[in-house]
Design a protein around this nucleic acid. Structure first.
Lengths: 256, 256
DNA sequence: TCAAAATAGGTCAAAAACGGTCAAAATACC
DNA sequence: GGTATTTTGACCGTTTTTGACCTATTTTGA
């Protein structure tokens, strides 16, 4: 790879993700950290990005509402996202639900190549489209307020035509008494449909979602394939989880 | 192989891949690195590619990156966007096409209240959703590369169910000989459909779109309602425009 | 607050690429 | 066929890029 190409790629990554670490670039590109630091220093002198300790930030940081929403348990969500992304190989097709946890996962999916992604989240679509020969299909419909999620009849109708290798769905609430529940009928229905339109399903839930109940039941699932969470659940939850999920992945809390 | 053939081949490779290294060419063609360097130097002097350390980059990629396109005639596009937005009152429903000019218009639409917006552009959706009690519906389908535009069957199928007060569509190319043309069949079809699904249609074209032709015709329109542009077109264009549009709005440009 | 870990920044040497010159080869022209 | 011109490949000194090493600084976690 040519040096100029590499620098362009760095800019591209930064403009998509908003930021990037030297370590991350080092894992992805086959050059030394020193070279990457020099690249970043140079791009920073040209005013094309902001150099910070450990990496760089986008200079034209037009990242809407990202930081505020992500502030809750960001560590846990990133750990979950990283682990869940490891379950998805290159070239797979993935239905990717809206939400902050799935958005974290999308960060790590940026390292994959040739994915086909179906999503109902504007930010996820923007993040993964046009990258690494991915195909991104967004489910149509009404965009919810500021979080960029899409639910409703249009999305369901479109999803009806597709079937994927994986479905990755965020959980709003999970309690031993009522199982999976959600905050709106539209969300519950679309998430059900997502789970039914993939060979393998993966549910993401950080520990704050446990022992919580929301108004609408997500029904019709005796068994689900994978649950990814960030902390070992308490005994009551653990039993309920064991009854419902074939496999549980606990992401050891780590920095990212 | 003749020298001229070789240089043509180099250009071909660059235009296909976007870039090439001297080493790569050396492995592929049976000539020395010195010769290749001379070729690249020469082609660079002719402005047919960009010479960089270790190789060369495409000088005019067929589709300029979104950020570049955005900066092309930004003044004109903002003037058009401001004027076009004045045509849309509060509370209306609007089909808003993807593109840099419509994105500029969306900036000014942020001042409106209670709009219902149908769009096939991720950035426009993100900009207007959750603002001023607007409803934003995004047309589903495959997201094009980095510019966040959506075309194709899914989008058409969804749009079929809706009808709006206004349709605002960006023009890719407009010439007296062939009228409206576009770069892909999908784009041409969706734009046609947009125009047919609103009471009033508004087409946006900065002056760089005039006297240009693209491969696919946008047909089926004897008359259209409004054209918004940034500069008075030349005589040939003016006549063609007069024949096609009921009303033409020229946004006074700030610079000369 | 302190210590360990991660990162930054500088120097240096190796590797790669550049640019110029020159002679050989290919081509064009008479 | 002979000569002039262009193209090509080789050589070599110079420049740029890169990776390794070392030390200083910052960050992180206890």
């Amino acid at each position: 790879m040519l040096a100029e190409q590499r620098r362009t790629l760095i800019l591209e990554i930064i403009n998509r993700k908003g930021s990037v670490s030297i370590t991350e670039l080092h894992q992805r590109l086959e050059v030394s950290r020193e070279t990457l630091r020099r690249d970043i220093t140079r791009l920073s002198e040209e005013g094309r990005l902001n150099k910070i300790h450990g990496g760089a930030l986008s200079s034209s940081s037009l990242e809407p509402a990202f930081t505020e929403r992500m502030s809750q348990n960001i560590e846990g969500k990133r750990a979950i996202g990283r682990l869940a992304a490891q379950l998805i190989p290159d070239g797979m097709s993935v239905i990717l639900d809206s939400g902050t946890t799935t958005l974290c996962m999308a960060d790590f999916l940026m390292e994959r190549r040739g994915l086909t992604v179906y999503t109902n989240d504007l930010q996820i679509a923007a993040k993964l489209a046009g990258l690494n020969e991915n195909r991104v299909l967004i489910l149509g419909g009404e965009v919810q307020g500021a979080d960029g999620a899409i639910f409703g009849h249009d999305a369901s109708q479109m999803l009806e035509n597709y079937f994927a290798d994986f479905a990755v769905v965020g959980i709003s609430a999970f309690s031993p008494e009522r199982g999976l529940t959600d905050y709106s009928r539209e969300a519950a229905e679309l998430r059900s449909q997502m789970l039914n339109h993939a060979r393998v399903n993966i549910l993401l839930a950080d520990h704050t979602k446990f022992e919580r109940q929301a108004p609408v039941n997500i029904s019709g699932f005796e068994h689900l394939d994978n649950l990814v969470t960030d902390l070992k659940p308490g005994p009551g939850m653990a039993k309920a989880i064991k009854n419902m999920f074939r496999k549980v992945h606990v992401a050891g809390k780590s920095r990212g």
